[in-house]
Amino acid sequence: MLPVSESFEYEYRGCDLIYGRGCVGRLGDYLAEHDLDRALIVCGSNVGASDELMEPIQEGLGDRLAGVFDGTTPEKSAEAAFGAIDEMHETDADVLVGIGGGSSLDVARQTSVFAQDGRSLSELREEARNGGVSPPDSNDERPPVIVVPTTFAGADVSDTGSIELLSAAESPTGQPASVGGSAMPIADFADPALFETTPAGALAGSAMNGLDKGIETPYARDANPVSDAAAVHGLRLLSDALPRIADGSDDGEAMDRAVVGSLLVQLDRKISIIHAFGHGFARRYSLQQGSVHAVVAPHVLRYLFEEVDAGRALLAEGFGIDPAGRSDVELGEEIVEAVADVRDALDAPTRLRDLPETREEDLPAIAEFVVDDSPMTRVPTSLEPTAEGIERVLREAW
């Protein structure tokens, strides 16, 4: 078993990755080093009510803690971002600290973006009702963001995200209207001790989203040896650690390995067709992306392996599968089974029909969304996906 460091720091695209148990105790020192004085925490109500989680962060921030906004929700509503903007102004905060899962980290980033955009929430919604919302301008004056992840969604080392302006029912297109801008965090404090405060169900629900970032990178048409190396090692760590966390046999070592793995699969990630499936469902429903990924990943991989190589030798390495003596078909099927095994260990959903709100009659429209989604530009070379082919995969997963 390959070891992981007890702590490390690494700069990635302007974001300082700071890993280690207890590393959030250094938050105040980090702010001081960057001439930042007043931090507003942005999180959800469950996170905000968890003393076990919040106390180490608040102690780490010390007298640089200006306030807490705990109004984020999984829906990533625009109200949450603008509520955080109001709180930022009231507390005179000069830095945002997003804590929690992917939705809270996205809201923290978009709070930073729209704090300097100049448009009000009502103006943005009016644009959405009139057919489209122009993205926010890039603004170097926006407040910096620090993220403190507590789930495996893999949404922390990212500059992307969006907030929902109109629900599907309110939107003139019949689909949720969202808008987002780019804001890379200046630091990511990845503290395994904080992940241990997250309920097992929330960890499991997020894990497949993060795992799939590692799965997708090796078969992306723009993959390279550097992105392959990070993805494969990240898969090694996650595929070993996640089942041990799920079954309660972890003594802390598996959590450390999973957090490092979650960081690795985000570096130079190349999201592709599995994420496009997730986005297709997001165009219709408010669903946790990890749940959609859990259901579709084995089916999508089987579809890929029937059509193209899809980096199966690298994926086999990531899941600890020895390719010796196995045909390409056998190797592909073992990878599919390995992914399903991790999914099942997490007790994640296995059928689309079991997800809230989903309707079988929507599958043709979702297939069209998937084919047109931007990550599909990264599908393996020579793969020519069609809406009909994608719909077949969806019906197999139904």
Rank of each mutant, 00 (worst) to 15 (best):
L166F: 12
V371R: 14
D268Y: 06
I274E: 14
D251K: 12
A84R: 08
D247S: 09
F319T: 02
E126M: 08
P199T: 00
G280H: 08
V157E: 00
S286G: 12
A190H: 03
R129A: 06
D63S: 14
P56C: 10
G318R: 14
M184A: 14
L65H: 05
A153G: 15
V259H: 13
A220H: 03
L267K: 09
G60K: 09
D228A: 04
D222A: 07
Y285N: 03
D16R: 15
L53Q: 13
W398C: 01
G161Q: 04
E361M: 04
D250Q: 09
G71Y: 07
S272P: 10
F152H: 15
G161T: 06
D268S: 12
D240P: 06
L304A: 01
S77W: 03
T358A: 00
L301W: 05
E384A: 11
R283K: 15
L264P: 00
A93M: 06
V260Y: 03
D228F: 11
D247Q: 13
L346T: 11
P380H: 09
S158L: 05
D212T: 14
A32D: 12
D70C: 12
N139R: 14
L242R: 10
G28D: 10
H89M: 03
E127T: 01
D156P: 03
E253D: 14
V371E: 13
G290K: 11
S77Y: 01
A254N: 05
E6W: 00
L124Q: 05
A397H: 11
F319V: 04
S162T: 07
V336Q: 08
L61W: 13
H279Y: 15
T381D: 15
S138G: 08
F369W: 11
L264A: 12
T91I: 02
F305L: 04
P144C: 10
G48E: 09
R343D: 10
F281R: 03
F114E: 14
D228H: 11
D328K: 13
P375Q: 01
A231H: 03
T91V: 09
R109H: 09
D222L: 04
R257C: 12
S227K: 04
S382E: 15
T350F: 06
F82C: 01
E164P: 00
E11Y: 00
R236Q: 15
P185K: 07
S77P: 01
M376D: 03
R284Y: 14
R38C: 10
L394R: 09
M208R: 09
F114S: 12
Q58K: 15
A220I: 06
S227D: 01
L124H: 01
A229T: 14
A258H: 10
E357C: 08
A345W: 02
R326G: 00
D240Q: 13
L355F: 11
P136N: 08
V260L: 02
A32I: 03
A169M: 07
T173Y: 13
T381Y: 12
A183D: 06
A294S: 15
P135C: 10
D362S: 06
A108N: 08
L355H: 08
I18D: 10
D16L: 15
V24K: 13
G14S: 11
L331E: 00
A397E: 08
M54E: 05
S45M: 11
Y30K: 07
D372C: 04
A168H: 06
Q288G: 14
R244H: 14
V393M: 09
L346D: 02
A229L: 14
